[in-house]
Nucleic acid binder design. Structure first.
Lengths: 123, 123
DNA sequence: CAGAATCCCACCCGATACTG
DNA sequence: CAGTATCGGGTGGGATTCTG
């Protein structure tokens, strides 16, 4: 089964796109050191809507990055935790986050300079 | 000047979002070892529209990740190259790309299993 | 509590046409 | 050649409502 370079490239891009998603990063970040319930995640990931939290978690579950554990009973309880695979992603993302942190000031400064040098057209 | 955690977090997310953009990654990747002209980039980054290439390059320039050099004359010639800052980004992205490459099969396999276990509702 | 379903709008982005 | 301008379809994502 031949697999073209194109396919591989597109798959990797897809994965990077997943990682680049802001909600994904925030959610994975929150699961760093402990498992959390749906409601806890909803509270701790500031600004996320119920819908987006659900979608993000589903995708992460589908990709094998988090586990979803339903505890029977009333009220219902669903817990989310990182898998081993999810942990390796966390490491990589953390590294990238450190790049972002480390160069944040530089980038902001560049933007400031660029924006003053290229004023918005009047319109 | 107090800078809230929220602000810093949002800035980092913004930067990660930038990195996650598929065109950004492809363009930066192509500039890895040599400077390229607009038209060359347009040819080599498969599928990108003129508009998106322009926008991507502008943003990268604004953030100080690439330089834009205009050579006078006819026909016009504009060359793009990575800055030192851009190179450090390239390194980080490459690392993440290696993660994606290394775990690609696992993720695809997880998806396959998930999709067969959770068949799409009939509709 | 943990979602699923629906509505709806803002914006992203591609296609196309025009310009210095 | 290297862009800008404009239009229009598709989509991401918020707000709201309903259910097991």
């Amino acid at each position: 089964m031949a697999e073209s370079e194109q396919d591989v490239c597109r798959q990797i891009l897809q994965i990077l796109g997943l990682i680049g998603d802001k909600w994904t990063i925030l959610v994975v970040g929150q699961l760093r050191d402990r498992t959390l319930r749906f409601g806890e995640l909803h509270r701790v990931v500031t600004g996320i809507s119920q819908r987006m939290l659900t979608r993000t978690l589903r995708q992460l579950e589908r990709d094998g990055l988090v586990t979803r554990t339903v505890h029977a009973g009333v009220p219902p309880r669903v817990e989310y935790a990182l898998t081993d695979l999810g942990l390796t992603l966390l490491d990589s993302v953390t590294a990238l986050g450190q790049w972002a942190t480390g160069h944040r000031q530089q980038i902001i400064e560049h933007r400031r300079r660029y924006d003053t040098a290229h004023p918005a057209p009047i319109r």
